[in-house]
Design a protein around this nucleic acid. Structure first.
Lengths: 214, 214
DNA sequence: CGACCTGTTGATGTCCCTCAAAGGGGGTGG
DNA sequence: CCACCCCCTTTGAGGGACATCAACAGGTCG
């Protein structure tokens, strides 16, 4: 983990920012690159809880609760902006508006986790996958991580399997069944039939939420 | 929905506090009774996202994002404390400490949702159920909702099925397989073998988190 | 060139869903 | 007060979606 000027931090693809159980003295906002938060079970299984895209806040929960409940690692090289936890109380005292934004962000995040829960609980494999790709595509488009009409997505099928709660094999086979609607090759996602994908995912095409910034 | 003095609100078992999509002008804290937050899919399936116990904050996300993403209904008669959403900005301006607590609560809630995601994604039916009962027992004990060495839990097997992402039938059968460790009858949960339950659930017996209050 | 990781595909098994039916309790109306 | 109905619970039978096991190809790195 390299330190840059002004609290900027750089980590490489595969590196871990912090582990489950770590006591954090800093929290972060993601500036460049992508990562993910994982939860590990005693038997070695792991669940990808959420992807981390530019603009996301990382480790706030760990700072507040004094103890990380997830492991954060980088799927591509990343740059993050680092804040000392003592800055947090200052923020609330001196800048109510930004503190308000913070709660707002937490609320948006919570609402997204709730939708993820609904997906894991109620949707079939192919439905989950269609839903996930629509979500990811939307988020990545919003932050401008695109290349032509594809979006950049540096994860593996194993990551996706752990995100959707499916086996790697079944993830691969389900992916094949979606080839008529989308492609995922060389770290690029291309949605060729968004309508069909939405129908499979059982999503009502919703307007993108405005995400507050710090 | 009956209004009491001083912003207290009473709703009856089965009543809905608000629906998915509603625009809320108030948010709440639960004082008495229990409820749940649901997410509904177009095909009629529903997912119980989280249980609502005394002390929990309800509808904060809906107020902030202007639009509820979940439906909240009561599993028993409930009493809630109601706050106008305009109070929120006042809170941040005038009482940084309580605003700080608010973010803290949101962070705890988020961390719990993350664990739920891991459960739905990685645990088998019996593991999920064991995990859920341990969680519920701990929360209800913490808020003092017990009766002898049982805790009060006014939900149905259908609710539990929707919480765990299982069918009602399989929920019932799995429940039967857990009878050597626990009982759930007449709205009361009794854990007769917590150790065995923890082993099934693959949980490390963790110290209870201190939950901040408003 | 070999070790390793990622992606791909086939065969086999199983956990859990769906369908079906019956009993108990509580509420409502005759 | 009893008949009826609805909701919740319980149990059995059968089928399907997904997991597990196994093997191979391509790419990257040491």
């Amino acid at each position: 983990m390299k330190e840059l000027h002004g609290g900027l931090v750089r980590i490489s693809r595969g590196d871990v920012l912090y582990h489950e159980g770590d006591d954090l003295t800093y929290f972060y906002t993601a500036k460049v690159g992508q990562g993910a938060r994982f939860k590990h079970l005693p038997n070695g299984d792991r669940q990808l809880v959420s992807f981390i895209f530019p603009g996301d806040i990382v480790g706030l929960q760990a700072v507040l609760e004094s103890g990380a409940t997830t492991t954060v690692s980088a799927a591509s090289d990343m740059v993050l902006c680092r804040f000392h936890k003592s800055k947090l109380k200052d923020l609330f005292r001196e800048s109510p508006n930004r503190a308000y934004s913070l709660v707002w962000i937490a609320a948006v995040e919570e609402s997204f986790l709730a939708e993820t829960i609904a997906t894991l609980g109620q949707r079939s494999a192919i439905e989950r996958m269609a839903w996930a790709f629509l979500q990811i595509h939307e988020r990545l488009t919003a932050v401008g991580l695109k290349q032509g009409d594809s979006v950049i997505f540096p994860f593996t099928q194993r990551d996706m399997a752990d995100a959707l709660g499916l086996s790697l094999v079944h993830t691969n086979k389900t992916l094949a069944r979606l080839r008529s609607c989308m492609r995922w090759e060389n770290g690029l996602i291309t949605l060729t039939d968004k309508i069909a994908l939405s129908e499979i995912a059982m999503t009502t095409p919703e307007e993108p939420k405005n995400r507050p910034l710090l």
